Amino acid sequence: MTGYLRNGYCEVPASDFGNHAIAAEVTEEFLKFSARQGNDLRPIPGMKSGCKWCLCTTRWLEAFKARGSEPAGDRIVPKIFLNATNEKALNKINLEDLKAFAADKQE
């Protein structure tokens, strides 16, 4: 089960120094990108494209910023679920950028 607390939600307690606030569906392109950045998530049991996971805000932001220079383009940026993303993500990421990659479009 995803979430720092393994409860299915992207809660960010004080002990979560990685700020795992982004509720996302990972892609194979993102998993490869993250591995190249030094954080290979693929050894996590069951981790594969299509998995929902609470990502660190810094890693999602790195993928977002790198999309223009990556052959995979926007596919390296995981779609996010705004309704399950913790508001602490806004400490590092602009809401409009999150909305641009939202799987659950909101007005």
Rank of each mutant, 00 (worst) to 15 (best):
2 T>S: 00
2 T>D: 01
3 G>M: 10
4 Y>G: 12
4 Y>F: 15
6 R>A: 15
7 N>H: 13
9 Y>S: 12
10 C>I: 06
10 C>M: 09
11 E>T: 05
13 P>C: 03
14 A>F: 06
16 D>W: 00
17 F>L: 04
17 F>V: 03
18 G>D: 09
20 H>V: 01
21 A>H: 13
21 A>I: 07
23 A>T: 01
29 E>M: 00
29 E>D: 01
31 L>F: 08
32 K>E: 03
32 K>Y: 01
36 R>Q: 07
38 G>C: 12
40 D>S: 10
40 D>P: 11
40 D>F: 09
43 P>D: 10
43 P>G: 09
44 I>K: 02
44 I>V: 08
45 P>R: 10
46 G>H: 14
49 S>M: 07
49 S>D: 08
49 S>F: 05
50 G>R: 13
51 C>N: 02
52 K>L: 04
53 W>I: 10
54 C>G: 13
54 C>I: 12
55 L>F: 10
56 C>K: 05
56 C>T: 04
60 W>D: 08
61 L>W: 13
63 A>M: 10
65 K>C: 06
66 A>H: 07
67 R>L: 07
72 A>D: 12
73 G>E: 08
74 D>I: 05
75 R>M: 02
77 V>Q: 11
78 P>L: 06
83 N>Y: 09
86 N>G: 01
89 A>C: 12
92 K>I: 10
93 I>Q: 01
94 N>F: 00
98 L>Y: 00
100 A>Q: 14
105 K>A: 15
105 K>L: 14
105 K>H: 15
107 E>Y: 09
